[in-house]
């Protein structure tokens, strides 16, 4: 069955669809968070080396993965926006930036509160942490650039270029623990080797990752609804929305 992508690429058709999708993803995220926290705090045993402090992994790794992944998704939408000049792709990229920034912030924050009891410090300028901090600043840079340019279509282009150039940082973060001597340990989970975690711990981490992922989708869809309304303010379909007519 062929999907008419151009149909869904129209803000007018996507606005109601985004609302329904966001609600579904938010419920899924809530259910998975409950399951993930149950596994992480009740079912999963304590860690042999780190004791209970390791339980931060169930929130640290999902937020760190999301911080990197959202940047790649943002780069994907930016490339589409630049290449095909599609309005909705640019709005998706615009919507993802604040969520990505918050995920990067949470990854750094939870990492600090995990590093203090295990390594003995909240912060160190090693390659993994420094490149994650650069990721946060890239997100903030994209948001700042967006706000600095009045014309939304020009802001789309400028932000897309900055996003694509900054994308080089993502592989640097991912491989930093292999390329350089870092305080941060290597990857426990990768595509190329067996996980270096007990199965139940890994399960908890993956469930929390999906919870985090679905939450990010939900909140980004809600935000893109607001962005569509902001940018299509004068359009007839916006004026005809029940929520606009009745208020």
């Amino acid at each position: 069955m062929a999907i008419n992508w151009y149909h869904y690429a129209s803000p007018a058709t996507f606005h109601p669809l985004a609302g329904r999708l966001a609600a579904a993803f938010a419920w899924l995220a809530a259910a998975l968070t409950a399951a993930g926290l149950w596994i992480g705090f009740v079912v999963a045993p304590t860690d042999a080396t780190q004791g209970e402090a390791y339980r931060i992994i169930f929130i640290h790794v999902p937020t760190a993965w999301m911080a990197m992944f959202i940047y790649l998704v943002m780069a994907f939408w930016s490339a589409l926006a630049l290449g095909f000049n599609t309005r909705l792709s640019a709005m998706m990229a615009q919507s993802l930036a604040p969520t990505g920034a918050l995920m990067a912030l949470l990854a750094l924050w939870t990492g600090a509160f995990w590093g203090r009891p295990t390594w003995g410090t909240y912060w160190a300028w090693d390659a993994r942490m420094t490149s994650t901090l650069i990721l946060l600043f890239l997100y903030l840079g994209v948001i700042a650039l967006r706000n600095a340019i009045d014309d939304p279509r020009r802001a789309d282009k400028a932000c897309a270029v900055l996003t694509l150039v900054g994308a080089v940082n993502v592989p640097i973060i991912y491989f930093s623990v292999r390329w350089w001597n870092t305080l941060h340990q290597g990857a426990s989970v990768s595509l190329t080797s067996a996980p270096k975690m007990a199965t139940i711990m890994l399960t908890g981490m993956l469930v929390m990752t999906f919870a985090c992922w679905f939450w990010c989708i939900a909140v980004a869809l809600w935000r893109v609804q607001a962005i569509i309304l902001e940018r299509e303010r004068g359009a007839g379909w916006v004026a005809a929305l029940p929520a606009v007519r009745e208020t």
Binding site: D47, Q50, T118, W119, G120, A198
Partner: peptide
């Protein structure tokens, strides 16, 4: 002047470690 611990990427319950 400062000593930090660097742990590995393995996570397991104490029984497994033992």
């Amino acid at each position: 002047t400062e000593v930090l611990a660097k742990h590995d990427e393995n996570y397991m319950p104490p029984e497994a470690a033992a």
